[in-house]
Nucleic acid binder design. Structure first.
Length: 436
RNA sequence: GCCCAGGUAGUGUAGUGGCCUAUCAUGAUGCCCUGUCACGGCAUCGACUCGGAUUCAAAUUCCGACCUGGGCGCCA
């Protein structure tokens, strides 16, 4: 009878001194030498060698070991014995060996990874793929990133909010939205909490953040875009772009430090190098200097007023060698809500936080005066009437404010050197993938 | 959306008109093996995405569909 899982010993806690132990996990590998069989038992903390001398164990144990398949779930009890012949200097000799759930054969992919599997194959069988220590490490890091982000912001007196993901209209512009049926009305999945967090500035919350999903219906097909992503969104009242850049770089450094401090073991099991904590402050590179660096580094022409292409970002990233901000962007290529400089309205108080490989975050001081917002919307050829829902809070007292949005997947991806952003999501949604 | 490259056993691959009754590895199944740690040995199993065309002959060439990867655009 199965009982007492709470009494089991995590594999990383099994030492030569453990004595009697109960361990549970997956059968990572079976090596049958004839009279002697080695079963590698894996839980999320590591791998333990179970050594089975067939003539010295009970017939029931011998039969269970003979019949077990790779990746079956088993519970094993027995004596832990110190030995120099086994990994970790200890092995478990079973007195009971119970198969709790037998894995079918053949497996859709090789968890032990003697043969690699393509990402598409892996995502189709993500439940198996995630058993691999490398994949498990990614999501332990992602969890640590989210934990430290929330802790850091709470510690800085932020209020965590959650805002609707089902919205009535395209409010921010610049991207395609997913239409959905909302009873008798048409609705959309929200592209960004931008306007809601600004409303909470209008509500006097002063410092708000949200960690939540964002949806983009863009038909891109790259290693750095998702149609459903997770965004860390921050908005701060009585702050300018410099203030929120300081906050952002402090957060990024703190997140790296927390991952370095808490995820060393899973990263090592997963075959990752230890994370290297970036040094603050990050360079603040004016846009005009950025395009000069880009122009010198790439063949394609680049002019003032162009956005930075991926090739340009890589060229600048190579020159910068670490995280950096691009600041003082031309107002013409930033959204209507970015605050122009008072002395030169052709540039604005917007910024991007860059990792050498790609953009991580965008932010700005926002326009907080209703009249100015209306003018900037109109100047972009948009109709202020269709922004009524957005503009209304600005009529009744809106503090000056600034904020940013930071992509969780890109942060994890660049932190760990992942080649494809889909690796940083358990169940990614891209142009073609809707299941699992 | 545009462009490029692909689709061969469960997985990863080799194979550019006949030598393919399709390579190798891993896996699965059975047998042997008491110190493996990518265990080893023997045997067996298992695949050319779909439809059409060209040809005496197609995994291989052509057309279409579907699917996948990547670059760009857009975007974060």
């Amino acid at each position: 009878m199965i009982s007492g899982f709470s009494m089991r010993t995590p594999i990383e806690k099994v030492t030569p001194e453990t004595g009697h132990a109960k361990c549970v996990g997956f059968v990572h590998e079976v090596r049958d030498l004839g009279g002697l069989t080695f079963v590698l038992l894996r839980d999320r903390t590591g791998i333990l060698q179970v050594t089975v001398p067939k003539k010295k164990v009970s017939p029931e144990v011998a039969r269970a070991v003979r019949e077990v398949s790779r990746e079956s779930v088993v519970m094993v009890t027995g004596e832990v014995k110190p030995t120099g012949k086994a990994p970790g200097g200890r092995e478990l000799v079973p007195s009971t060996f119970e198969v709790l759930s037998r894995a079918g054969t053949p497996l859709p992919l090789d968890v032990a990874e003697k043969v690699p599997a393509e990402l598409d194959t892996r995502l189709d069988a993500r439940f198996l793929d995630a058993r691999r220590p490398r994949v498990a490490a990614v999501f332990q890091v992602r969890s640590a990133v989210l934990y430290e982000t929330a802790r850091y912001l709470h510690k800085h007196d932020f209020i965590q909010i959650t805002t609707p993901k089902i919205v009535a209209a395209a409010t921010e512009g610049g991207t395609e939205l997913f239409p959905i049926a909302y009873f008798e009305k048409e609705a959309f999945l929200n592209q960004s909490p931008q306007l809601y967090k600004q409303m909470m500035i209008g509500a006097g919350f002063e410092k708000v953040f949200e960690i939540g999903p964002i949806f983009r219906a863009e038909e891109h097909n790259t290693t750095r875009h998702l149609n459903e992503a997770t965004s860390i969104d921050v908005e701060v009242a009585f702050a300018d772009h410099q203030d929120v850049m300081d906050l952002l770089e402090g957060l990024v450094v703190s997140v790296y430090e927390h991952v370095a401090a808490t995820c060393a073991a899973p990263l090592e099991r997963g075959g990752f190098e230890p994370v290297r904590v970036p040094k603050a402050p990050f360079t603040r590179l004016p846009y005009v200097e950025a395009i000069e660096i880009a122009a010198a580094g790439i063949d394609e022409p680049i002019a003032y007023g162009d956005d930075l292409s991926p090739a340009a970002e890589r060229a600048i990233g190579e020159a910068m060698g670490g995280h950096y901000f691009v600041v003082d962007w031309p107002s013409s290529i930033r959204p209507y809500y970015a605050m122009p400089y008072e002395d030169d309205p052709s540039i604005c108080k917007a910024f991007d936080l860059m990792h050498p490989r790609m953009e991580l975050s965008s932010g700005a001081q926002r326009v907080h005066q209703h009249d100015q917002l209306v003018r900037q919307i109109a100047a972009r050829g948009l109709s202020p009437d269709s922004f009524e829902f957005y503009l209304r809070p600005f009529l009744y007292g809106m503090p000056p404010h600034a904020g940013w949005g930071l992509g969780v997947e890109r942060l994890v991806m660049t932190m760990l050197g992942l080649q494809n952003i889909r690796e940083a999501v358990l169940f990614p949604r891209d142009r073609h993938r809707l299941v699992p």
